[in-house]
């Protein structure tokens, strides 16, 4: 008689005796989940299209510049001007994706499952914040790195170029963090106040897009050449232009909310940048003491962070 081979699988309930890692594991899980949600990983195809498209749009300037940099006598974008070039797309990305991390949790009711687990509201908010920071930081640094590699390869003496410009690397890392923290703070704070992603996105875009021309009208002036009518004759007069707000213009330029990280960026990279579509704001703001743009940046980053926490402390589920 042979002994029966094989095992009997007990499909009954088994208690879990393994490790329980508490809050650290909860934070880590929320962080990973936030990154995956932002990029549409593990979700239907439709959820991947938008982040992929926006990611490509951010990378395009870096790739194009890397390619044209091989041409002699072409004035290319360098690390100091890159963030300003991609700032609009970054803002668009944040306005569309950031609400994804907070709004559905409240609309679908998942938040009430999170809050009864071994973690606090602060853990939840901090993990989501870090997750979105990771994504935006990854995107801006990816662009800068592609740009750096492109510029090194295009240089006639690659090693020489690296020796002369290695300082750009820590600079763009720091500036990248500045930009990423900024594009994380305001969009997430706005998302905390509505459960509809569409409303959050419109408010964020409205804030960034509308503030630019408003600041422009208040703080900038057009051409230096103006047509003045003098005694029935039209003459072209070149005059020092005078913005609508006069001497206070440099303060009004701070209203260009979307450009605030660029002001800090300009302080990180020595020398005045003259690249970028919004360089006029930078030139006007440069008249202010350095502490002003830095302070304004910190207010606009830490303030929304605190508003986000405050809002979630009061949430009722």
């Amino acid at each position: 008689m042979t002994e029966a081979q094989g095992e009997v699988f007990d499909l009954g309930y088994r208690r879990y005796e393994g490790p329980r890692e508490g809050r650290m594991r909860a934070r880590k899980a929320l962080w990973v989940n936030g990154v995956r949600t932002a990029l549409g990983i593990g979700r239907p195809l439709g959820a991947k299209v938008i982040p992929a498209f926006l990611f490509i749009a951010v990378m395009i300037p870096a790739v194009i510049v890397s390619m044209v940099a091989t041409q002699p006598n072409v004035d290319v974008i360098r690390h100091d001007g890159y963030y300003q070039i991609v700032s609009m797309i970054l803002i668009l990305f944040s306005a569309i994706i950031a609400p994804e991390l907070l709004c559905p949790d409240r609309r679908d009711g998942v938040i009430s499952l999170y809050l009864v687990r071994p973690m606090t509201t602060t853990d939840y908010v901090a993990a989501r914040w870090m997750a979105f920071l990771t994504v935006t930081l990854g995107i801006v640094l990816a662009g800068q790195i592609v740009l750096f590699v492109g510029l090194v390869l295009a240089a006639t003496e690659p090693l020489e170029y690296m020796k002369d410009n290695w300082l750009d690397v820590p600079r763009f890392m720091l500036a990248g963090l500045v930009v990423a923290a900024f594009t994380t703070a305001i969009p997430l704070a706005v998302s905390a106040f509505t459960t509809r992603r569409a409303y959050a996105t419109s408010i964020i875009m409205g804030l960034f897009i509308i503030s630019l021309p408003v600041a422009g009208i208040l703080s900038l002036c057009g051409e230096d050449e103006t047509v003045a009518v003098q005694g029935g004759k039209e003459t072209v007069v070149t005059q020092k232009c005078e913005p609508a707000t006069g001497d206070a213009a440099k303060w009004y330029a701070l209203l260009a909310v979307g450009q605030v990280p660029s002001f800090v960026n300009d302080l990180i990279f020595p020398g005045q940048t003259d690249e970028g579509i919004f360089k006029e704001f930078s030139l006007v703001v440069a008249e202010l003491p350095d502490a002003v743009p830095i302070g304004w940046y910190l207010i606009l980053t830490i303030g929304p962070g605190l508003a986000l926490l405050w809002r979630y402390r009061r949430i009722s589920v």
Partner: peptide, 9 residues
């Protein structure tokens, strides 16, 4: 995901 949020590896 929810199991991890409860602390499981």
């Amino acid at each position: 995901h929810m199991a991890q949020v409860s602390g499981l590896p």
